Computed example of a mutant assay.
Amino acid sequence: MNQHSFAMQTRATPEVLERVLRVTRHRGFQIQSMQVDEIDNRQALRIRLTVYSERPISLLLNQLNKLIDVAQINELCTDQQQKWA
């Protein structure tokens, strides 16, 4: 299984975490760790996820980018690269 880490910035809406988790599950990725921090005076969230799957990470990132509340996604690391961006 491949492990991938990425960070995303979203609007701080009540349903954003549910949407992120649903898309992650529907695309066949399992969450290993998740960290959520409020930023910009509670107007936005920074979500850091580490997921694993045999599927390409682009399948997940492309779908997360389509969510209305997602402003930005940055891939941090994969287990194959072992190099932080």
Rank of each mutant, 00 (worst) to 15 (best):
M1G: 12
N2S: 14
N2K: 15
Q3E: 14
Q3S: 14
Q3D: 03
S5Y: 08
A7Y: 09
M8C: 10
M8P: 01
Q9Y: 10
T10P: 03
R11C: 01
A12S: 15
T13G: 07
P14I: 07
E15G: 13
E15T: 11
E15F: 14
E15M: 14
V16T: 11
L17D: 01
E18Y: 13
R19H: 12
R19S: 09
R19M: 08
V20P: 00
V20S: 05
T24Y: 01
T24K: 02
R25H: 07
R25W: 04
R27T: 10
R27C: 10
F29C: 05
Q30W: 04
Q30A: 08
I31E: 01
I31Y: 03
I31P: 02
I31W: 01
Q32I: 08
M34H: 04
M34R: 09
M34F: 10
Q35N: 13
Q35G: 07
E38W: 01
I39E: 04
D40K: 15
D40I: 05
R42C: 05
R42V: 05
R42F: 07
Q43M: 08
L45S: 02
R48P: 00
R48W: 10
T50C: 12
T50V: 14
T50I: 10
V51P: 00
V51E: 04
Y52R: 15
S53E: 04
S53N: 04
E54D: 15
E54F: 10
R55T: 02
P56W: 06
I57S: 09
S58K: 09
L60A: 06
L60S: 03
Q63F: 06
L64T: 02
L64D: 03
K66W: 00
K66R: 14
K66G: 01
L67F: 03
L67K: 08
L67C: 02
L67W: 03
I68R: 15
A71M: 12
A71C: 04
I73C: 01
N74H: 10
E75M: 12
L76T: 03
L76E: 01
L76V: 06
C77M: 15
C77V: 14
T78V: 02
Q80W: 08
Q81T: 11
Q82V: 06
Q82P: 00
K83P: 00
A85F: 14
A85Q: 15
